[in-house]
Computed example of a mutant assay.
Amino acid sequence: MIEEATLHNVRRYRAIASLCRQAALFRPLQKSSLLKQAEDWEHLALIELESCLDQREEEETNAPAEPMVDTRWWLPRREGLFANLEA
């Protein structure tokens, strides 16, 4: 799952982009500048998502092939620990 901080940043970047597009409707003289800013914010959102996904893929490829086994509760082999004891 994508981290909560990444999703928060993406939502924020896209909200700012939306505000820029809305402002462009009411400011015809600054329309091109505001639309460029909206495009830049959307690009930042995509970069944020891609970096998070790339990091997750890297973690998955670096994961050990065998699952981690908790050996703290394994009992020693009978012949190893009790080999020299007489009944």
Rank of each mutant, 00 (worst) to 15 (best):
M1S: 13
E4W: 05
E4M: 04
A5Y: 11
V10C: 03
R11S: 14
R11Y: 10
A15M: 10
S18Y: 15
S18N: 15
L19G: 15
Q22D: 15
A23T: 04
A24Y: 02
A24K: 02
L25H: 09
L25A: 10
L25C: 09
L25D: 13
L25K: 13
F26A: 12
L29S: 13
L29K: 13
Q30C: 06
K31M: 06
K31P: 01
K31Q: 08
S33Q: 15
S33P: 02
S33L: 15
L34H: 00
L35D: 03
K36P: 00
W41P: 00
W41D: 03
E42G: 02
E42R: 03
A45L: 00
L46E: 14
L46F: 07
I47M: 08
I47K: 11
E48W: 01
C52W: 01
C52E: 13
L53P: 00
Q55S: 14
E59S: 05
E60Q: 07
E60R: 09
A63Q: 11
P64C: 02
A65G: 04
T71R: 12
T71K: 08
R72I: 03
W73M: 11
W74C: 11
W74S: 07
R77D: 12
R77C: 08
E79W: 11
G80T: 14
L81K: 14
F82L: 15
N84W: 07
A87E: 10
